[in-house]
Design a protein around this nucleic acid. Structure first.
Lengths: 358, 358
DNA sequence: TTGAAAGCGCTACCAC
DNA sequence: GTGGTAGCGCTTTCAA
């Protein structure tokens, strides 16, 4: 005789209550873990729930409580090791705090980001962690916060948005790196970033609307200026989004008569491409060109030469953002906090003194 | 005079209906995009919705329709480049199909996975994409499917589970790789995996309950046997979960009197650790030991030497899984499909003929 | 084409 | 401590 297992689709509190011989309200109390119930009743209900294989319906619960138990996360691209590590940090804290994470990729595109936010609002997420694609195009974010939704900005801030923000000390890190390169005699220092401008050219820092990158470039330019290097804007290259684009940017730099003697890569994917191209062109790192990369990707310590990097506390960026958000979700309502986590320069073999005439 | 923007918290269909001067049902029809409405009414309602800044409540909609518009995803660790790429594939397809993704990490732990599944069921996800931590410990998965929830297994199958499955041709890839190494004269070939056994020792393939890895080891052992190499089980090392563990496993192998002449790394994180250790110990790749890695991580093409890898179609693993699931969510109900995607061996500089007495 | 009303499964409030 | 009951915001009959 086959014992058909209880078909679960929609065993409700009412069913459990009936089986346990109590009212819906009472069953709900023990199932939902609120209010007070006598021990006997609690056991009866629990037993009935198990027998029926009852599964709570979070959706229904959310309807009445107004809390969905979810956090919406918007990152540029989960495939990017920077974001996957940060998201790991977010999910770890979220799970621990009883929240679940809805993940969306913006592809660093403001329109896609808007659509994502809209969806997340419709899903009634309890809070938002966003790494905004643009610093200026933020009406959708402002509106979300204005409607009372707690939000934390990750890795990129926005002066125009008065919300919790967790970033690394990008400007300081860039300053330090630039200073070191200049001390090594470098004068032609290129900075390559994925951030793009309408005409794919860089003129001034205001062109960059990704906070973290803008701050880095500000640091880079200011240290250069301090050292008497002016017009360094011409060494900033934007639009290194996909590897082909990065490839041509790097190749063009390397082939130009005035080749840079040092390059700062704004992320590890760009650094990787630089590594590929320098080899194709038969150049030497650090003989011909020094290399520094933002983000201490795991591989940077095994290449030949090993790569000097800015080690950002990426995982902690994620956990910190999640913690700030969870605090608010648990009722705290302090003024917007701006947290800046320290980066560390890890000097390895890809940087050395500039050659020749520099 | 400050124009206070419409406070959005809970503008409902009823509000819109009232403002548009129609019934709730009618407003709902245009807002929800179903049923038929006259053009005039549609416009009135749309206008009212905009004026009130109406936001649909997906939760409420889900309650009545029974569809939440979400897909639950359970992976081992989003920080692992393999999974982050696969998840990228999943989210791309999901978004395109109008679904949103709830992401959870199991940490390759069956208990954590169970809890995750329970949460996802409570959230009433429409379907599940799971990369099961264990092939045998799957009652929770079986129960989920039995209750009618569509599910797709990613990267790892389970004979015991008759559901859609998307994997790479791991066994074949391992066979090919092993055959090549043997042809190069290798006899002492180690295989290192993160999959663990209760006593951290490997005796037979049944010890491994991660489908993909088990199939690889099967392929490896069978090709060895074909070539007359027996007892190769002793060359399989398990438990390379964290880098410290991998480190000691590799160091121990390298220091043993009978050092392996070739190593197959079951994932790119292990390969990276092998790279670090070989250098610390002053060994040469491929002079002293050849290296092959599963997963074509981006860095494998820039190290010195470059690393021979099994290039799995990771992104496609993700998109395919998502497509199979979306098909079912859209009503298709074919028998369980087992999709096997082809891997490709990319021969680079880390493999060469065995030295000396082998 | 439109409206009234009945739920979806749960929580919350108020009596008893 | 327990039970009745009124919603949460939406979709979905069923009549008009």
């Amino acid at each position: 005789m086959e014992q058909s297992p209880p078909r679960n689709t929609s065993v409700t509190v009412a069913d459990v209550a009936r089986m346990a011989g109590v009212s819906k309200a009472t069953a709900a109390r023990v199932l939902g873990g609120y209010g007070t119930v006598s021990e006997r009743v609690r056991e009866a209900v629990t037993a009935a729930a198990r027998a029926l294989n009852y599964r709570p319906n979070e959706l229904a619960r959310s309807m009445t409580t107004g809390r969905s138990g979810t956090i919406g996360v918007v990152v540029g691209d989960i495939e990017n090791p920077f974001f996957s590590l940060a998201v790991r940090g977010i999910t770890d804290i979220a799970r621990q705090a009883g929240f679940t994470v809805i993940l969306t990729n913006s592809g660093e595109n403001a329109e896609t980001e808007k659509a994502a936010i809209r969806t997340l609002l419709a899903k009634r997420v309890d809070g938002l962690i966003v790494s905004p694609a643009s610093e200026s195009d933020i009406d959708h974010l402002r509106e979300a916060t204005r409607s009372g939704l707690p939000m934390v900005l990750l890795d990129r801030g926005s002066e125009a948005l008065d919300v919790d923000t967790v970033i690394a000390d990008d400007r300081h890190a860039a300053e330090t790196v630039t200073r070191k390169l200049i001390a090594l005699g470098h004068r032609r220092i290129a900075y390559i970033t994925a951030c793009d401008t309408p005409d794919h050219c860089f003129r001034m820092v205001q062109d960059i609307n990704t906070g973290s990158v803008r701050r880095r470039i500000e640091g880079y330019l200011s240290v250069c200026a301090e050292a008497g290097l002016t017009g360094m804007e011409k060494w900033v290259r934007v639009g290194a989004v996909k590897s082909e684009q990065t490839h041509s940017i790097v190749a063009e730099l390397f082939r130009s008569p005035e080749r840079p003697t040092a390059i700062i890569a704004s992320d590890s994917m760009i650094a990787l491409e630089i590594f590929k191209v320098h080899r194709q062109l038969g150049l030497s790192i650090p003989g011909d060109v020094s290399l520094v990369s933002f983000h201490d990707a795991d591989w940077t310590s095994v290449t030949t030469p090993t790569v000097t990097v800015v080690r950002q506390p990426v995982y902690d960026l994620g956990t910190t953002a999640a913690k700030l958000l969870v605090e608010r979700l648990n009722g705290a309502a302090p003024a917007a906090r701006k947290v800046v986590l320290k980066s560390e320069i890890v000097e390895r073999a890809s940087t050395r003194e500039a050659y020749g005439d520099c």
